[in-house]
């Protein structure tokens, strides 16, 4: 996936056939369990239960919105213009922003499914087909995240936090 044009608000990419297939990873969205999000670690927040519920409503509403955007993107074949080497596709800055949220949800969801390992999941003992599938999903989501972040910042990027 390469960026071939970057304006302040519009970005044009070329992606290969294989990468377009891999982009289907966003179909897994939402992947992070809803119960994963906690407002606080302490218990000293006023109206803690009510505020926790507000957070859950806000995230639920955002998940629904993003889920519809994902479905719309994947059901819009005209968005991907076929070229000799694969496809050309345009995204706005706003679309990249929600795609980043979606991709990171998929990445974090797979990491949680792996048991939230502290180190590189590839190095964990007991790899199975299921865990390998989660690891591959994490890597694919991370690949697209880096490509989009590179487009936004204009700089080559590396590394996990």
């Amino acid at each position: 996936m390469i960026i071939i044009q970057a304006g302040p608000e519009h970005f044009r990419f070329e992606i290969s056939w294989e990468e377009k297939e891999l982009l289907n990873v966003i179909r897994l969205y939402p992947h992070v369990p809803a119960a994963h999000h906690r407002l606080t670690k302490g218990r000293r927040i006023p109206d803690g239960a009510e505020n926790q519920q507000l957070l859950e409503y806000a995230l639920q509403s955002q998940r629904e919105e993003n889920r519809q955007l994902v479905a719309a993107l994947l059901n819009e074949p005209a968005r991907f213009a076929e070229i000799e080497t694969g496809f050309r596709v345009d995204f706005t800055r706003g679309e990249i922003e929600w795609l980043l949220q979606v991709l990171n949800d998929v990445r974090v969801g797979s990491w949680i499914a792996l048991g939230s390992p502290a180190g590189h999941p590839e190095m964990q003992p007991g790899l199975s087909n299921e865990t390998l599938s989660h690891i591959m999903t994490m890597d694919v989501a991370g690949f697209f995240e880096m490509a989009f972040l590179h487009a936004l910042t204009g700089e080559p990027l590396t590394g996990d936090a």
């Binding site: 980043l100 990171n104 990445r107 974090v108 991370g142 995240e145 910042t153 590394g159 996990d160 936090a161």
Partner: peptide
Amino acid sequence: GYLVICWDDPVNLMAYVTHVFQTVFGWNR
């Protein structure tokens, strides 16, 4: 008197975390 704290999830990409902080708080890079 309320603190907003971000905790380490090693799964998150460094560039992604930086981007989110810039977007949410309007901070420079």
